[in-house]
């Protein structure tokens, strides 16, 4: 029997959390934005380094204020921070969430800088991406639209979870 691990996608609204999950699970993408209210949970089974793992993926509505995650992060095993390379505001939220939930620093995490297909609107500089290193995350430039690095990012988190067993 494979292990089941709860992972949460967190970040500002409209950064592409729902789209990333949809791309990862269904290999599909839609341009139309439908904001998530509450949480939508799906599962995906993976085999990483010959070990099976079942990811239970919590796609949570974009961060609103302190206490936003109270009901959703219980017992979380892994985190995917989702930032939007075309929206500087989405980077500020990382700090805010870390401050409001200090205990999540211990949770294995990866960071996606999403919408990397939008090169023309890309505003985040390499230096800013490098400064994320202080959080000790593996950082991926992803695109829910083209699928770039989506599988790689999720797989990375899965292997982090397996190695922490």
């Amino acid at each position: 029997m494979s292990v089941a691990k709860k992972i949460c996608l967190i970040g500002r609204f409209a950064v592409g959390k729902t789209s990333l999950v949809k791309q990862f699970i269904e290999k599909q993408f839609g341009e139309k934005y439908k904001t998530t209210v509450g949480v939508s949970i799906s599962t995906k089974n993976l085999t990483v380094e010959n070990k099976d793992i079942s990811l239970v993926i919590w796609d949570i509505a974009g961060f609103e204020q302190d206490g936003h995650y109270a009901h959703y992060m219980r017992g979380v095993h892994g985190l995917i921070w989702v930032l939007d390379g075309t929206e500087p505001e989405s980077f500020k939220i990382l700090e805010t969430i870390n401050n409001s939930l200090p205990e999540i620093k211990q949770v294995p995490s990866v960071c996606f800088i999403n919408k990397c297909d939008l090169v023309d609107e890309w505003v985040i500089k390499e230096s800013e991406i490098n400064s994320l290193k202080e959080f000790n995350y593996a950082v991926y430039k992803t695109s829910a639209k083209t699928g770039e690095n989506v599988e790689a990012g999720f797989t990375k988190l899965a292997s982090l979870l397996l190695s922490s067993l």
């Binding site: 089941a4 691990k5 709860k6 998530t36 209210v37 509450g38 949480v39 939508s40 949970i41 799906s42 599962t43 079942s54 239970v56 509505a61 009901h71 959703y72 219980r74 017992g75 095993h77």
Partner: peptide
């Protein structure tokens, strides 16, 4: 309901606005 697999059932919990499907929450 495999989505509740990793939950801990040693204590009470609450999940508001769980999206069962597109139409029912």
């Amino acid at each position: 309901l495999p989505v509740f697999l990793p939950e801990m059932y040693n204590e009470e919990f609450e999940i508001p606005f769980y999206n069962l499907s597109e139409h029912s929450v």
